[in-house]
Simulated scan of single mutants.
Amino acid sequence: MQASVKWIDDMRFVATSGSGHSVVMDGDQGRHGPSPMEMVLMAAGSCSSVDVVGILEKARQPVWSCEVELSAERADSTPAVFTRIHMRFIITGAGVSEKHVERAVKLSADKYCSVSIMLGHSVEVSHDFEIRED
């Protein structure tokens, strides 16, 4: 896997993935784009969501929507690393099984989500979920 990051101006940078997709990041407290730390947090949520949706689809659960609300705490001193991350999955569907959602979230957290598992070596990562009927 490869990527590049190029300085644009001020504290803005454009990051380009090896697959050719680009995103602007802002080191000036996210004024013109997500900050690098916000990107890490969003990557953890995206990675876990991919797992949860895939697992629920394989279990033939009638899911229409999957959102994950992420909250994080950072150290007070430099480097201001994440100390805690919480992921709250909101699954919407018709008759979605709580057992299947719980299993999907647990499998993502413990086995499949590379980003979350990598962060979990130095950050307290927690998960919960809610199911909404549509």
Rank of each mutant, 00 (worst) to 15 (best):
S114I: 02
R60P: 11
E98C: 09
E102A: 15
F89S: 08
G95A: 02
V81R: 15
V81L: 08
S65Y: 08
Y112K: 08
G120K: 03
H86K: 12
V115G: 12
C113R: 02
A72G: 15
L119Q: 08
A75S: 15
E102Q: 15
S48N: 10
L119W: 04
V101D: 02
A59G: 07
S48V: 00
R84V: 05
V101R: 03
D110K: 14
E67H: 15
H121G: 14
P62L: 00
S114H: 13
V105W: 06
L107H: 10
T78C: 11
A80E: 07
C113K: 01
F89A: 09
F89P: 09
W64C: 14
A104V: 01
A80D: 02
Q61C: 09
A59D: 07
G93N: 05
M118F: 11
Q61M: 09
V63S: 07
I85H: 06
E69D: 15
E73L: 12
V81I: 10
C113F: 00
R74S: 05
R88C: 05
T78Y: 15
S71R: 14
E98P: 14
S122D: 02
V115Q: 04
A80I: 00
A104K: 03
S108G: 10
R88P: 01
S49Y: 03
S108Y: 03
K111T: 04
I85Q: 03
S49N: 14
S49F: 02
S97T: 06
V53K: 12
P62N: 02
Y112H: 11
A80N: 13
L119H: 10
I117D: 02
E102Y: 05
R74T: 08
S114T: 12
S108M: 01
E69S: 14
V115D: 01
V96Y: 07
T83E: 00
E67V: 07
